[in-house]
Amino acid sequence: MLETKNLQYAYPEQQMLTFPDLNFPKGQHGLIIGQSGCGKTTLLHLLGGLLTPKSGEVMVNGVNISKLPASRLDQFRGRNIGIIFQRPHFIDSLSVGENLILAQHLAGLKPDWDRVAELLERLNLVHKIKSGTDRLSLGEQQRVAIARAIINHPSVILADEPTSSLDDSNALDVIQLLEEQASSVEATLVVVTHDTRLKNKFSLQIQL
């Protein structure tokens, strides 16, 4: 589950951003929509512990991540929060499979090639397990990014504009996959977007 209270953040010499309180129960999927520049990405970074809020708190699985010491926060994020970005990025020197193994390793979990293979199988990418990530199409890359986000069975998955650089059919594929995979690990899924194609895909929608 994911919950925020009185969340505020300010960039240096800029107006304070105030966010509505959120409450996503375990397994809930929801959409946060808003125009560019309204603080969508900032909110997502606050939820993922990439930014520390000026005030207020972010509760993930009952843990107030705003209060975690920096070293614990990184570890906590690796294990409990999967994040998908607008443009997929990988460690270029590693293959698709190794990128997923690295996600396990950095979260402090044991590398599990069976899990990697199974996940890629589900995403129809198992034949790319040894490929370099730069050899994939954009849609394929976004699917590997999804695999990386869910590989450690996170309780929360955050997606920042996951479809905005994809064409219609890829966008719908990706969002469907995202929902399926989030459900398969019973994770709370929060998608932040201004992509209107997604509007009727989610019942829970929050306007920023």
């Binding site: 920096a70 990184d74 294990r79 950095l106």
Partner: peptide
């Protein structure tokens, strides 16, 4: 820079 940030997202501390 992006790779390094990604590693942080995946759970690596600055020390690593």
């Amino acid at each position: 820079k992006y790779e390094l940030s990604l590693m942080r997202v995946m759970g690596a501390s600055p020390g690593r």
